[in-house]
Computed example of a mutant assay.
Amino acid sequence: MYIDLNCDAGESFGAYKIGNDEELFDYVSSVNIACGFHAGDPNVMRRTVGLALQKRVAIGAHPGLPDLNGFGRRAMKVSRDEVYNLIVYQIGALQAFVQAEGGKMNHVKPHGALYNMAAKDMEIARAIAEAVYKVDRHLILYGLSGSMLVEAGKQIGLRTAQEAFADRTYRADGSLTNRSRSDALITNAEDAVLQIVRMIHEGKAGTIDGIEIPICADTICIHGDGPHALTFVKEMRNTLKQQGIIVQSLRVERGEKK
């Protein structure tokens, strides 16, 4: 049994440091690197790409809305064409750094509000999927499990990865609990580990609405900017190892392992 563990990375900006990429990269199999719109800058992008190649983790682009002040977590009214152009632009920026450093891009995972918008809005989902396909049809598109983004990716012919979250709670419709609520985040490592183990073994997750929902998990996300991220991922790796579950990235090239 295999699972991919991914984390959002490269989210520092200028003099501001966010996350603990260097230590986290020792425990995950894939990383999603910010592309300068919601977080990150050219210096951070190059440094993070170099670290990912050094640690032998799969590299993905993490494009977001142009909202540095809100860290890309505030919904914006954007047209289909704007979404398409935002995705192409940001993938291209990171892809250039990856190529310059001698690596290869593996996947694309939209960030924050854009990710949540694409989960429910097929027009936005299709714009993202089309942008990824046009840039490189071999890239894997990461999306919320059971979302419209995953469906749009499949329809256009992309390989998709259904993503579940260790450190977020769910609603009855399969969406993530809005961060404005006090119960949106899981702050206890044991609870986070129990949630992902159940997702992997049973394909289910509990919700704040008190019901169970089906969850398909190809990849599990840990938010790199979370205060408990390193503790969570260490606990997860230990538990998964004990249960015989192998942590491995969803590489484009078959047979390539971390």
Rank of each mutant, 00 (worst) to 15 (best):
G203M: 03
A58K: 08
K204S: 06
D183W: 10
I211V: 15
A166C: 15
V252I: 11
R237Q: 12
I215H: 06
I87H: 01
E202K: 13
A161V: 05
G174Y: 07
C221F: 03
H38A: 04
E235S: 14
L144H: 07
G143Q: 02
Q95D: 15
A15P: 05
V233T: 09
G153M: 01
L86S: 04
G36Y: 01
E212A: 00
R181H: 13
V88K: 10
A9K: 01
G64N: 05
R254D: 15
E163H: 04
V49C: 09
I222D: 10
S30P: 10
G19N: 01
I196V: 15
G244N: 06
I246H: 15
N116M: 07
F232M: 10
L250M: 08
P214L: 03
R198K: 12
V44P: 11
D21C: 06
M122W: 11
A205G: 04
L230K: 05
S29E: 03
R47T: 10
A125D: 00
R73D: 01
G64P: 01
M148P: 00
A131Q: 04
I222H: 11
Y27S: 00
E235I: 01
E212G: 01
G157I: 01
V83Q: 06
P42L: 03
A129Y: 02
L65A: 04
A229M: 02
L141D: 03
K257W: 13
M105C: 10
F97G: 01
A75P: 09
R168H: 05
Q242M: 15
Y142H: 11
I222C: 13
G206R: 12
D26I: 00
K154V: 02
E212Q: 02
D8S: 07
D173L: 09
P66I: 02
R46E: 15
L149M: 07
E163G: 05
T160F: 10
I140H: 11
A113C: 07
S145V: 02
R171Q: 07
A189T: 11
N238Q: 15
V108Y: 12
L141W: 04
H62W: 02
G103V: 05
K17S: 14
N178Q: 13
G103Q: 06
G92E: 04
D191V: 05
V197Y: 04
N32P: 04
V88P: 00
Q242C: 12
Q195R: 10
A39E: 06
G70F: 08
Y89D: 09
Y89Q: 10
S182D: 14
N20P: 03
D173V: 08
Y133V: 00
L194T: 14
Y16D: 03
H201R: 15
